[in-house]
Design a protein around this nucleic acid. Structure first.
Length: 591
RNA sequence: GGGGUCGUAGUUAAGAUGGUUAUAACGCCGGCCUGUCACGCCGGAGGCCGAGGGUUCGAGUCCCUUCGACCCCGCCA
């Protein structure tokens, strides 16, 4: 039996010792971060989740414990009692928070030994991600990622504080629920009791939170896991966490202002960062026009300008023909273009092909003319007009893309970010929030040959666009809004439909027959007939918010046990095969 | 489904044009060392070059297949 665990309790965290503790007796427990054995005196940096403390074993003070300390290796777990003292003069270590003091050990117990870890934990050295994920429990001992998870915990706590204080009720909703059409692919769970039937894990608690509004809960929230069986990215995991919020008797402005308050509260309490409210708002159309994306990074300019008018009748057929087919021509301008070499410029042709563009034209603006592969194809008037439109001066570089509107926007929108990163135009200390409003209600899906909901099928259309529902669905705007932070969509929501007749109209516009709507959403349509209040809400991607707050590049660095890009867990080896007995119990057969 | 980067001691990496015994640093093991803090000094062990096949007198290096990690496109209401 450990005499420390049964008799003596930890008195302090290693990382909290300061000069104020000098003279006091402390009991520490932690991991051996580093050991420096001088043959005589032995120093150990002992680590816990707060930080490091130097503990000292001196053979003259206590030969027996010093002998024991010789056995100590990296990552051994120690319990020890000792006295905090000031370090001898000129022996302080200013790079450690606890560097002014050290602990002279007079009792030691090795609580556990450790094999040599597969990678060293005492540096910030880059370790390959498959090793990190396989030994995630060791990776999570590293201070940087521990700090991320601690910050995440504080952000979650402050979210709850704020919402509770503002009268919200946290209510849990089912994980075993009904598969719904529309949206992402569902993760399915077979039902043993009902052979051949499946639950789906929720892509979000959307319908349940609306039903809670019908029930009169008025202000609901939940910090909740959601599941989507789609391909992964640096900021996408198959299971992720949302801050889910819904309110009754509110307009867009009410939801926006309470959530601006939420963001300000979290950033203030967790990061000590004062956010300026209200956040700017721009419409979806404006975002696309100016930035090419509905999640613009507004920390830098490089805005898109439209050259279609100037070039639609150009003798340069490449441009005029594209316009003739309904295409557009847009451009961005980089000041001080010397920073881009000729090779940089030519390499961009490969870059833009990723986004479906056939190419990109560039022009170095000179005092009289351009240096540009397309200079000889354009008239002097066109050159002048373009310079004027772009407000270009000598030394600037202009990038021009001509194609369908969506390819042009996609290409320039991403090129904008690419160039900003390459040219260091982004101040990493800035948090630039923007609301995007008036999203289109529908997107046309080429694959499904029908309109699909841009947000989701329960989103209310703008009243003034109701008449367009049957005649011109592409131009119906939704009462939907996204919150964008530094070019990441961190949240989105809408005012919902609360009338059964409007909901039916939308289902019709989406190509759902009454019967299909009945089977898929009958319970919701029923509920709408029993006094549903006007309501709306929002959901935030909690992991993404934490990524931005911690400044990490990968969502895996803010999740304790993440999946790989192929949606597997290298630690547990999930997913894995199951026994034939398990399958039979579920009435399943592998095809 | 598609495009790209990568895989060499425990770890991180170096290994032009194919050519003897595959390097280095850190880590690990042993020895020495009483004030270090990336402690120092001396010595040592450690490799099926992701896996399989092929070309060749000869492959870490070239070709094919395959596995895995990461980034991107599609996808993600």
């Amino acid at each position: 039996m450990s005499r420390f665990i049964t008799g003596k309790k930890r008195s302090h965290y290693c990382g909290e010792l300061r000069t104020s503790h000098i003279g006091s007796e402390v009991i520490l427990m932690g991991w051996v971060h580093r050991r420096r054995d001088h043959g005589g005196v032995i120093f150990v940096d002992l680590r816990d989740r707060v930080g490091l403390a130097q503990v000292v074993f001196n053979p003259e003070v206590n030969p027996e414990i010093h002998g024991e300390a010789h056995r100590i290796r990296s990552e051994y777990v120690l319990a020890l009692k000792g006295t905090v003292r000031a370090r001898p003069p000129d022996m302080e270590n200013p790079s450690m928070k606890t560097g002014d003091v050290e602990v002279m050990v007079d009792e030691l117990e090795i609580l556990n030994e450790s094999r040599t870890p597969p990678f060293v934990l005492d540096t910030d050295a880059e370790i390959s991600e498959n090793l990190r994920l396989k030994y995630r429990y060791l990776d999570l001992r590293r201070q940087a990622i521990q700090q991320n998870l601690i910050l995440r915990s504080r952000a979650a706590a402050e979210t709850r504080n704020y919402l509770q204080k503002n009268g919200f009720v946290e209510i849990e909703t089912p994980f075993l629920t009904k598969s719904t059409p529309e949206g992402a692919r569902d993760y399915l769970v077979p039902s043993r009791v009902n052979p051949g039937m499946f639950f789906a894990l929720p892509q979000s608690p959307q319908i349940f939170k609306q039903l809670l509004m019908v029930s009169g809960f008025d202000k609901y929230y939940q910090i909740v896991k959601c599941f989507r069986d789609e391909d992964l990215r640096a900021d996408r995991q198959p299971e992720f966490t949302q801050i889910d919020i819904e309110m009754s008797f509110v307009s867009e402005d009410d939801i926006i202002s309470i959530n601006e308050g939420l963001m300000a509260h979290i950033f203030q309490t967790v990061l000590g960062k004062e956010l300026r409210l209200p956040f700017p708002r721009i419409t979806y159309n404006e975002a696309i026009e100016r930035y090419g994306k509905d999640n613009p990074d507004t920390r830098f300019t490089l805005e898109l300008r439209d050259l279609t008018d100037i070039l639609e009748n150009s003798d340069f057929m490449v441009f005029s023909e594209i316009v003739g087919r309904g295409g557009v021509i847009k451009a961005i301008k980089v000041e001080d273009g010397k920073r881009l070499s000729r090779k940089d410029l030519d390499d961009l042709n490969n870059y833009v092909m990723t986004y479906g563009a056939k190419g990109i034209s560039w022009a170095r603006v000179k005092e009289k003319d351009w240096t540009s592969p397309i200079f000889k194809f354009l008239s002097p008037t066109e050159i002048t007009e373009i310079n004027k439109k772009m407000e270009a001066e000598e030394g600037d570089v202009i990038f021009i893309v001509a194609d369908t509107p969506s390819i042009v926007h996609d290409t320039l929108g991403n090129l904008r970010i690419h160039l900003a990163e390459k040219l260091n135009l982004i101040d990493p200390s800035v948090f630039a929030f923007t609301w995007i409003t008036e999203f289109p209600m529908f997107d046309y899906s080429d694959r499904e040959k029908r309109y699909i909901a841009t947000h989701h099928p329960f989103t209310s259309p703008m009243e003034e666009d109701l008449a367009l529902l049957e005649t011109d669905p592409a131009n119906v705007r939704a009462r939907a809004y996204d919150l964008v932070l530094n070019g990441s969509e961190i949240g989105g929501g809408s005012i919902r439909i609360h009338k059964q007749d409007v909901q039916s109209l939308i289902f019709k516009a989406l190509g759902l027959t009454d019967e299909e709507a009945r089977t898929k959403f009958g319970f919701l349509l029923d509920a709408l007939e029993y006094g549903t209040p006007p309501h709306g809400g929002i959901a935030f991607g909690f992991d993404r918010i934490i990524m931005l707050m911690t400044g990490v590049e990968s969502i895996r660095d803010v999740i304790a046990f993440p999946k790989t890009q192929r949606a597997t867990c290298l630690l547990t080896d999930a997913p894995s095969a199951v026994s034939i007995e398990q399958l039979m119990e579920l009435s399943l057969k592998i095809v």
